[in-house]
Design a protein around this nucleic acid. Sequence first.
DNA 1: CACCAGGCCGTGC
DNA 2: GCACGGCATGGT
Length: 246
Amino acid sequence: MDENLRETLLGGQTFSWRDDGDGSFSAVLDGRVCRIGSLADAASDPFLSDYFDLSYDYEKAREEIAAKDPVLREAVESTGTIRLLKQDHWTATISFILSQNNNIKRITGLYDRLSRRYGHEVEPGRYTFPTSFDMAQATEEELRALGTGFRAPFILDAISKADILDEVEALAFDEAMERLQAIKGIGPKVASCILIFSYQRREGFPLDVWMKRVMREFYPGKDPSYFHPYEALSQQYLFSWIRSRG
DNA sequence: CACCAGGCCGTGC
DNA sequence: GCACGGCATGGT
């Protein structure tokens, strides 16, 4: 087993991709519909080459993570390579605000509804994810009507503080975590997801309900620094593993 | 009918 | 500093 594109694209780090049902996946990114059947399709596309982080040595990382302990080895060997995508800051921020106390299927639906309501149609039925400017006139009532629920005011707060996302780029990890949490609806878990999946901060280690279970059961007394320098990737493998194991 | 989902906020101690 | 209830919505 080498790449696990399905897990990378549909496993909860992005909500942009759809299963086309013919062995390929598609998303509206970079202002156009991107389609991909295997990682080779990304190599010839400069935007996707960067987005899929092709210059990083994931094979070496896999080997070093697997060698760390038996649990990690089982997690890594239970699946193919999971990549850390380089997503747009704003898209990732709204995506993970939507993710709190929610499930992947419903998050994806909300992402689609926001796109249809505030984004731009680039092909019949395919819409860009709206920018903070596209959403500047959004109201809480509108957002609630789309099903965002109690997250609606959080989205409005993010719109008004979107400039924070530019500041974060220059900050060290701990300061970046703190700065992102100035936006309502962003706590430690959401902040770490944004930093990993949009700012390439591989020291992030999101602790959601699943990962708290993993830590309690298999790593009692340990903290994320145990996984250094592969905190984020180790977390992705453990998350995928525990979730598929039920 | 419960209970849960890639949590966080506000409040109280 | 930590514990707790509440929160919109849809699926099981």
